[in-house]
């Protein structure tokens, strides 16, 4: 790229450490939400009728999170739907956002992934500029602001609902935050699930989830909740043993964020299926 001159712009006194703020001031065209907002906005007349909905586009579905013995677990299925079609069977909806936090998203796939990407850069940017990472609380609040900025798109049907988890090093515990479409932030103590199969996953978690669960057991509970959601909800994809597509599960504890290996998931899924057959 030709050398742009963000250099000049930074010589101002307002030394925000926010990348989002930097983009909105110096490069608004790069903010996905801002751009869409401008495109869509002229059609909203004050007091007039709602603009037409956007055509069908890929949507991601069930994601869940709960606390277990060492920290917090976050998981999601792999299906994206587009109306009554399956748009993708291998979509990733769970993202590591920094060393001690991760987020999962349900909603319109494009804006979802954009938000996750932006949020990850945001946290890294803050850490580099400021010399220390944001606190768990600070990260959760900041994500709320980003969801709020997305609100005009929600009116168009481009809903993005994130679920944020982090390991709070001060409290030495895992924390879960859920959001509403206006950016409202609510902390959950035990578990939560969002997306089209969210309710089914929550019902399953309610039965099996305990704070004292050891790691291995927690992974099992997460898989079972996702399988239950897939059985009840068309938008949620279950594990596909033929194509070897398994849900994404990440564990966040005092050592950081790590993925549950595919081989572990494969054997746990198979065990779950055999048990279902026997029942």
């Amino acid at each position: 790229m030709p050398f742009e001159t963000p250099f000049q712009a930074s010589f101002s006194l307002d030394s925000h450490s926010s990348f989002y703020h930097y983009l909105s001031v110096h490069k608004p065209e790069l903010l996905p939400m801002a751009k869409w907002h401008n495109l869509i906005n002229p059609s909203i007349s004050p007091g007039g009728s709602m603009p037409t909905q956007v055509p069908p586009l890929p949507h991601g579905t069930t994601v869940l999170a709960f606390t277990y013995q060492q920290g917090v677990l976050i998981a999601g299925d792999r299906r994206a739907t587009e109306g009554f079609q399956i748009a993708s069977t291998r979509m990733e909806k769970v993202f590591q956002t920094d060393e001690f936090s991760a987020m999962a998203i349900a909603g319109a796939a494009g804006p979802c992934m954009e938000m996750a990407k932006l949020f990850r850069i945001e946290l890294e940017h803050y850490e580099k500029l400021d010399g220390q990472p944001l606190t768990c609380e600070g990260k959760a609040n900041h994500l709320g602001q980003m969801v709020k900025a997305n609100f005009p798109l929600v009116l168009q049907g481009l809903v993005v609902i994130p679920l944020f988890v982090g390991y709070d090093q001060k409290r030495e515990s895992g924390r879960i935050f859920k959001y509403d479409i206006t950016g409202g932030r609510y902390e959950e103590t035990d578990f939560h699930a969002v997306g089209s199969g969210g309710k089914d996953a929550r019902n399953s978690l309610k039965e099996h989830c305990k704070k004292s669960l050891p790691e291995q057991e927690a992974v099992r509970v997460a898989l079972r909740a996702l399988v239950n959601a897939a059985e009840e909800d068309v938008g949620t994809g279950g594990p596909d043993v033929f194509r070897r597509i398994y849900p994404t599960i990440k564990l966040v504890d005092h050592q950081g964020v790590r993925d549950v290996e595919e081989s572990t998931l494969a054997s746990l899924c198979e065990a779950l299926i055999t048990r279902r057959q026997d029942e």
Binding site: P6, F19, Y22, K128
Partner: peptide, 8 residues
């Protein structure tokens, strides 16, 4: 400025 440039 370098960090901003790199992240953008």
């Amino acid at each position: 400025a370098g960090i901003q440039h790199a992240d953008v």
